[in-house]
Simulated assay, not measured.
Amino acid sequence: MLGLLLLQGLASCLWLGHGEVVNSFASCPQFFYSRLPPNDALNPKNPAWICQRYNGSYHYATLYNRDERIPVYSAYKYHPVEGNNPRRLWMVEPQLIGKNNFEAMEMESVLIRNNFTVEEIQKSQAVNADYNMTVWDRGHLCPCGHMDNKESKKATYTLTNAVPQNKSLNDGQWKVYERRTMIEMTKGCTTTYVITGAVPGKNYMSNKRVNVPSHIWSAACCLVDEEPKDAWGAIAENDKNEVENITLGELEERLTELYKVKNITLFNNSCSQK
């Protein structure tokens, strides 16, 4: 019996190492402080855990809401570098469609050339056509500008990392938060872990296929020499060009109310609540 359990455990580990869309973040815990993701309070009814893989490497992690066709959050290490963003070639996640030979994000056109149908892709996730002729931007949760190399920057351009975001907010105060506030707040930090997410709203776009979030939020945990030094949060209503800079504790309380769940913890109470 013990031998059978060991074999089952080994098979499970092998599967987690192979697949990028599985039932946990066991393949990519390095993007979370203490290697622990937020508690289960944020988990949607039909989730997908995605270790975002591009060109043979993991770059960040995303919890995806299959029913609403938007991510719940993306988690990453903050490593901004100056430089131009790559060409915007938005990709999708083949493994949300089902078992296949694609282990990483890919262009829709490539999948279609490999006998995937448009209907198959659309059923499992948002696609580029959903954003055509709309007033909503493809709003990054893990932003290109917070990545430190060309491959990681390209990896942020997948629709499993994007939500419909108010254009004035995306180009306005949310950009200020990403590009200025984060730089100021992370001065002196050795490592900063970030989790950025979106609260599902009551409205939809693209013939009610894709949920339009009511709020965009972000949380950060600053470490100095591997010890927590500070933490903070930010939240914005998705129909206004305003961002509130608040404490991590305040953000968790706000999210607990907005998601109508109990006791959301983003860093498992391991980071400073100042």
Rank of each mutant, 00 (worst) to 15 (best):
V92Q: 01
E93V: 08
L96Q: 09
N85S: 07
E103G: 07
N85E: 05
I112S: 06
E103T: 13
N85C: 00
M105G: 12
M91T: 04
N85H: 04
I97G: 06
K99R: 11
K99V: 11
L96N: 09
N101G: 14
R87K: 08
F102V: 04
L89N: 03
M107G: 03
L111K: 05
L96F: 12
G98Q: 11
I112R: 12
M107W: 13
S109C: 05
A104I: 03
F116T: 05
P86R: 05
E93T: 11
E103K: 07
L89E: 01
E106Y: 09
K99S: 11
L96T: 08
F116C: 06
N100K: 07
W90Y: 08
L89R: 00
R113K: 15
N84G: 08
P86Q: 03
L111G: 06
N115A: 15
M91F: 04
W90D: 01
R113Y: 13
E108M: 14
R113M: 14
N100A: 11
L96C: 08
V92M: 06
A104Q: 15
V92G: 04
N84R: 12
E93W: 07
V110T: 15
N85M: 07
G83F: 02
P94V: 06
N85V: 01
A104R: 09
F116Y: 14
F116E: 05
E103W: 10
R88Y: 05
L96D: 08
A104P: 02
N100C: 09
L89A: 00
M107A: 13
G98S: 10
M91W: 01
Q95C: 06
V92A: 04
Q95F: 05
A104K: 10
F102K: 10
N114Q: 15
N114S: 14
V92T: 04
F102R: 09
I97E: 04
V110D: 12
P94R: 08
L96G: 10
N101K: 13
S109V: 05
N101D: 12
V92S: 02
M105R: 10
M91E: 03
P86M: 04
Q95G: 05
M91C: 06
N85Q: 06
P86F: 01
M105A: 15
P94G: 07
I97Y: 08
G83S: 02
F116R: 10
R88M: 05
M107V: 09
E106T: 14
F102S: 06
M91D: 01
N84A: 10
P86H: 04
F102A: 10
L89M: 00
P86G: 03
M107E: 13
E106N: 13
I112G: 08
Q95A: 14
N84Y: 00
G83Y: 01
K99E: 07
P86E: 00
M91G: 03
N84P: 00
P94F: 06
G98H: 12
I112H: 10
N115T: 12
R88A: 09
R88N: 06
F116D: 03
W90I: 00
N85P: 00
R87Y: 01
A104M: 13
E108C: 07
L89D: 01
N101I: 09
L96K: 07
K99H: 11
S109I: 05
F102G: 04
G98N: 12
R87T: 02
N101C: 11
M105L: 14
V92E: 03
F116K: 09
M91P: 01
N100R: 10
N84C: 00
L111Q: 07
V110R: 09
